[in-house]
């Protein structure tokens, strides 16, 4: 069987020629991934140590001001992910175990379609919902819930809502994969044995979907912490997020070394998180599934 794919005889031994051919085929995607993935990270690292191989940029990037930015970004990432997971649990549970079969695929598509829509536009849509003259304020004032329009837009809250909006479909997708593999008979068995909804969730659903939730968290929180468009479109003049600093270092201040050190501090935290996750075999499995 193993010889089945080989060239029919001619030339060097079939195994070697096949290896060479496969190496050539693989070189295209690998070349691209190395050129735009690995090389830039190396360049970034070298730049962060320059000029003259020192840690000056790192000293600058870890000043309290920028530590605050990093911490705000990471806390935002974790808080948004927590909300997304909280919503995703009942949603994917219903979808995987309660939803009538013929509605399952259309509902899943509807929940995940926003992943494929333009996130600049999706963020912008919230301007019209949250602005002083926007839909929500008109509604609240209209029914008399508030006396005058609230300042919702360009606040931490609007950034938070925008992030949940953009990343919820992603978390739903990851959690659905996990929830679908959960054997419904286990839930029924637990119920037959008298378990309450709370106990079924805590003893059966949660332990079996936790690796998926951990994998989703590891991927999504870092994307949120490093996001640029959402805080730029929905954020106020107050809190700055890490991507805005990096972008400014590149485009405006032309302070590459500082931006590179900042990027590397951020990247180290993300990689540390991923390695920590990968230390758990079941989380590693889920990460590989992404």
């Amino acid at each position: 069987m193993s010889t089945a794919d080989d060239d029919a005889g001619a030339g060097p031994p079939a195994g070697v020629s096949r290896l060479v051919r496969d190496g050539v085929v693989a070189s295209g995607p690998i070349g691209l991934a190395v050129l735009l993935g690995i090389v830039p990270i190396v360049v970034l690292f070298v730049e962060s140590l320059g000029p003259g191989l020192g840690l000056g940029n790192y000293a600058e990037a870890t000043r309290p001001l920028y530590r605050g930015v990093l911490s705000y970004s990471l806390r935002m990432g974790i808080a948004v992910t927590a909300v997304c997971l909280t919503v995703s649990y009942p949603v994917t549970y219903w979808l995987a175990h309660r939803c009538p079969a013929r509605y399952r695929l259309p509902t899943l598509v509807a929940l995940t379609l926003p992943l494929w829509l333009n996130y600049v536009v999706l963020n912008y849509a919230w301007v019209w919902v949250l602005a002083r003259g926007g839909v929500l304020n008109e509604l609240l004032v209209g029914v008399g819930a508030v006396a005058g329009p609230l300042d919702l837009l360009y606040t931490d809250l609007s950034v938070f809502v925008g992030f949940v909006y953009i990343y919820l479909p992603y978390v739903v997708l990851v959690m659905y994969v996990s929830m679908e593999r959960l054997d419904y008979r286990l839930l029924e068995a637990a119920r037959d044995l008298g378990a309450t909804n709370t106990r079924v969730f805590l003893d059966v659903v949660l332990p079996r979907t936790l690796p998926g939730a951990a994998a989703a968290t590891l991927i999504v929180y870092a994307r949120i912490a490093g996001a640029y468009a959402t805080p730029e479109i929905l954020g106020g003049p107050g809190e700055v997020m890490i991507a805005s600093l990096v972008t400014a270092a590149f485009r405006e201040y032309i302070n590459f070394g500082f931006g590179a050190a900042l990027s590397f501090v951020f990247l180290s935290i993300v990689v540390a998180g991923l390695l920590l996750g990968a230390a758990f075999p079941r989380v590693r499995e889920e990460l590989a599934r992404q």
Binding site: G37, S263, V270
Partner: peptide, 10 residues
């Protein structure tokens, strides 16, 4: 896995 802003900057 790598934050896009880090990659884009690099």
């Amino acid at each position: 896995f790598v934050p896009t802003v880090v990659l884009a900057f690099g």
